[in-house]
Design a protein around this nucleic acid. Structure first.
Lengths: 244, 244
DNA sequence: AAGTGGTCTAGACCACCTT
DNA sequence: AGGTGGTCTAGACCACTTC
């Protein structure tokens, strides 16, 4: 025990164990009770060490089963490429450009008309909105929650009401309706997940998420969509590019 | 105790207490031992509840003193505005555009020549680099670590070697040296802080940070700076804008 | 049924801040 | 010196997974 609290020391040892190339990456760590004996510590101290590794995204803990090394390379999210007119203009779903090696797929979609919360209504200029809630997964793992708000008066009766808005996605449909999105602003925060988000993304309170709020505006300055996204922080690298 | 584990229930109660407008925001919460009695729980259970509030950025915990409500509005970081040529071209330090109400100030600067780590050397095309390490604070609170790497062959002998690179900052100096940055790419991750970062930013392991790696390129495609930043996640809202 | 992680207890002692 | 949070112990019982 060189320095620092014992639980950090144990966490450091466990990191070494996990990174050992000779180890089978699929086998779980020893159970907590065994680790407690191995490192001559109380069970709660071992738990605290493991909670560190978990927050780092180094391991996945499965209740009733064990603690597993996470084999997980982050997904690249290139904001500019994803939203270039070329992408949606040519009939690609924007998410198809979001993959690295693995495929980001849509796990669920729910669409309905609602009263917008205050901060959304303020941006869109109306309380009557269509809400599109989606959940995206990679390798069966939920990685992103996305909720889009669109003015009801614009989208009512269009294909945007359907769960599958058709080729090119909702931006292509908006363009056809005469409201082509032209400029985007994305506000981003790194924060801890709410209890709901923890459950949906299957992460713990200490596991960071990125919240992205995107506003899409037409050339004449009307905001036609607000998209609130919550990403598993460890699962993504986000990228923006721009010129001076 | 409606639902969920007791520590979440206690955390929920404490959030209510903290948000009570009639409460003096400067007085700390009751000590852990008192809370344990109040909520009829063991001290460790109360601690777990408080660690939630802490990770959320709702409270600041001062060892030996108490648990205090954090009065803290996030700083807006507008990437595009900060890096427009107008900003640095006209002699403004880029950080002057980064303030909301409060002032983001430079707390320390260290400049020296070093061997670049592998991933940096790869981007800059050389191992000989000038490293500029800065720490930024708001209201005496550290909020950002920034480390810039620049090719030694370009900046040697210039004002960029000095702790104060002069009006307009290092981008203005680079422009004067014939290497005006023209395009930027920022890669962003939400993650947990390393032990070093925890100490420097005075945050805990569960408190999220945003890591931004920016590459600055000249018009002819040469990468002339790599800037690695680590931001206190709760302290910032980051903003990017772009067109389709 | 057996084994795993998740929660919780009821303390002890240490490190740090305030007075 | 006294009070605060930080670490740690040595268990108990519950919830979930696996066989």
């Amino acid at each position: 025990m060189a320095d620092g609290p014992k639980y950090r020391e144990i966490a450091a040892r466990l990191r070494e164990v996990l990174k050992d190339p000779k180890r089978d990456p699929a086998t779980p760590l020893d159970p907590e009770r065994v680790l407690a004996e191995t490192y001559n510590a109380a069970p709660t101290t071992v738990r605290k060490a493991i909670s560190l590794l978990r927050a780092e995204g180094l391991v996945d803990v499965v209740h009733g089963s064990g603690v597993y090394l996470r084999a997980w390379k982050p997904i690249l999210r290139d904001a500019n490429a994803r939203l270039s007119a070329q992408q949606w203009g040519e009939g690609k779903a924007i998410w198809e450009s979001d993959l690295g090696d693995r495929l980001v797929t849509l796990a669920s979609v729910a669409v309905q008309y609602e009263q917008a919360p205050e901060h959304i209504a303020h941006l869109l200029g109306t309380e009557d909105v269509l809400v599109r809630r989606r959940l995206y997964v990679v390798d069966k793992r939920p990685v992103q929650i996305a909720v889009s708000y669109l003015p009801a008066e614009i989208v009512r009766g269009s294909q945007i009401e359907r769960r599958d808005p058709g080729p090119g996605g909702i931006y292509k449909r908006l363009a056809e309706l005469g409201y082509a999105p032209e400029s985007f602003v994305e506000d981003v925060r790194a924060r801890t997940p709410s209890p709901d988000e923890q459950q949906t993304l299957r992460i713990t309170a200490g596991h960071p998420v990125a919240e992205i709020v995107r506003r899409a505006r037409t050339a004449d300055g009307r905001t036609v969509e607000v998209n609130e996204m919550v990403l598993d922080g460890e699962a993504y690298i986000m990228q923006w590019s721009f010129t001076s």
